[in-house]
Write a protein that binds this DNA or RNA. Structure first.
Length: 198
DNA sequence: AGATGGATTTTC
DNA sequence: AAAATCCATCTC
């Protein structure tokens, strides 16, 4: 049911691609909120200037050095949280950012957590939105995704066609800016709208 | 449909 | 000071 430790302890680009179509589940007050993952990004090691761990092992990035299968949750822009699945063996700092999901189970609860958007494609179509919709915050940082109240499982859902492209919001990352390490399901309405700064 | 600015806190 | 974002509020 839940993805195994071995699933996460692989090369990060492979994990990022194979997480598409898997189901993110959050147990909250006796309900399993669930959504199909439709968009991910890979952040790969100390050399990757877009990866937080390029700054080395700090209090913020220590989770990225953990063994694959842990959750790396951080606050961004003072308002929002982002959820990552840590990848690769312990000591290699890398993770996959879960950017968007298609709500599947307890959609009404997720909609309410998101303050009732007009359309369901606005519930979890972005990393900050996804964390709001599933009540994910920093208290989950470092948790094990292979046990506990937050996990990813395989329901053998149809994945469709996978597209790749540059990661969002990493203009500062030099030669790593244009790496095609963003993965998403082509045509799925729950993929985030890409906007870059001007 | 696309651009701009504001909210707010962690990080180095 | 800038950030792996989101939203309201402009302008075309």
């Amino acid at each position: 049911m839940k993805l195994s430790r071995e699933f996460y302890c692989r090369p990060t680009l492979e994990v990022a691609r194979s997480l598409l179509g898997k189901v993110l589940v959050r147990r909250l007050r006796g309900k399993n909120l669930a959504g199909k993952i439709v968009e991910t990004e890979a952040y790969v090691g100390k050399d990757d200037l877009a990866c937080h761990a390029s700054k080395g092992r700090t209090s913020r990035t220590v989770t990225m050095f953990e063994k694959g299968g842990c959750a790396y949750v951080y606050m961004i822009y003072g308002f929002y949280f982002c959820l990552n699945a840590v990848t690769e063996p312990e000591g290699y700092p890398a993770a996959v950012l879960i950017r968007a999901a298609e709500p599947l189970d307890h959609v009404s609860v997720m909609r309410r957590l998101r303050k009732n958007p007009d359309h369901d494609s606005n519930i979890a179509s972005g990393p900050g939105k996804l964390c709001m919709a599933m009540a994910i915050d920093k208290t989950l940082n470092g948790r094990d995704l292979t046990s506990g109240t937050l996990w990813i499982e395989d329901r053998n859902l149809d994945v469709g066609r996978i597209e790749t492209g540059p990661r969002v919001g990493v203009d500062y990352a030099g030669e790593y800016r244009d790496k095609p390490w963003r993965f998403y399901i082509k045509g799925n309405p729950h993929v985030s709208r890409v906007r870059w700064k001007g």
